[in-house]
Simulated assay, not measured.
Amino acid sequence: MTRLLQIWVIDDHPADLFLTQQVFATLSDQVTVTPYQSAQAALDDLRRPNATYPDVLLLDINMPQLNGFDVLRAMKADDRLTLIPVVMLTTSEAVEDIQQAYALFASAYLVKSVDFSSFIQQVESLVTFWAHSRLLNWSSPNSAGPQR
């Protein structure tokens, strides 16, 4: 049996985080979600010894203190975290934000649909894609990246 897809969601806005969790709850047979309202808390958890890494991390851009680009930059600068796929999940359609996300090596950029049923379809597509694309066997943080 294949283990559930592990997704972390970092979004400082409580209503957006709640809505995202509710959509993922409809897919609970395929995915588990770990929510974070604080980007720093998520980074701290990723950096702790023997951390269990997510298969994919969903990251909002506009957050106080550490924004999504700060988190992405920090992850890609850390040899232990650089291979974790990061999907920017945001309301921003700004060309500059999209370009910056890819310049910082985001795996994908997804603009949240304002229509709830469309958002559900976005999440379902995301889960389907990453369930088939993930690295199934993350190594310990003491080594560099996923086991091969």
Results as ranks from 00 to 15, higher is better:
Leu4Val: 07
Leu4Lys: 10
Gln6Pro: 08
Trp8Ser: 04
Asp12Asn: 13
Asp12Val: 02
His13Val: 11
His13Pro: 12
Phe18Val: 07
Thr20Lys: 02
Gln21His: 04
Val23Glu: 06
Val23Lys: 00
Val23His: 07
Ala25Gln: 05
Ala25Met: 11
Leu27Arg: 02
Ser28Asp: 13
Thr32Met: 11
Tyr36Ser: 03
Tyr36Cys: 02
Tyr36Met: 03
Ser38Gly: 02
Ala39Asp: 12
Ala39Gly: 10
Ala41Asp: 15
Ala42Asp: 02
Asp45Gly: 06
Asp45Arg: 00
Asp45Glu: 05
Leu46Ile: 09
Leu46Ala: 08
Arg48Ser: 01
Arg48Asp: 02
Asn50Met: 03
Tyr53Glu: 05
Pro54Glu: 06
Pro54Gly: 06
Leu57Gly: 09
Leu58Asn: 09
Leu59His: 05
Leu59Asp: 01
Asp60Val: 05
Ile61Cys: 00
Ile61Met: 00
Asn67Ser: 12
Asn67Phe: 14
Asp70Arg: 11
Leu72Thr: 09
Ala74Glu: 10
Ala74Gln: 13
Met75Asp: 04
Lys76Gly: 02
Lys76Gln: 15
Ala77Leu: 00
Ala77Lys: 04
Leu81Pro: 13
Leu83Cys: 14
Val87Ala: 12
Thr90Ile: 06
Thr90Lys: 07
Thr91Lys: 08
Thr91His: 09
Glu93Gln: 13
Ala94Val: 05
Val95Tyr: 10
Asp97Arg: 08
Ile98Val: 14
Gln99Cys: 07
Gln100Lys: 07
Ala101Cys: 07
Tyr102Glu: 01
Ala103His: 03
Leu104Arg: 04
Ala108Val: 01
Tyr109Glu: 08
Tyr109Leu: 11
Leu110His: 02
Leu110Val: 06
Val111Leu: 02
Val111His: 02
Val114Pro: 12
Val114Phe: 11
Asp115Met: 07
Asp115His: 14
Asp115Arg: 11
Phe116Leu: 07
Phe116Arg: 01
Phe119Arg: 13
Ile120Asp: 09
Gln121Val: 09
Val127Asp: 06
Val127Arg: 01
Phe129Trp: 01
Ala131His: 11
Ala131Lys: 10
Ala131Ser: 15
His132Ser: 14
His132Phe: 13
Ser133Ile: 12
Ser133Gly: 03
Leu136Lys: 06
Asn137Glu: 09
Trp138Arg: 13
Ser140Pro: 01
Pro141Tyr: 00
Asn142Ser: 12
Ser143Arg: 11
Gly145Val: 00
Gln147Glu: 10
Arg148Lys: 06
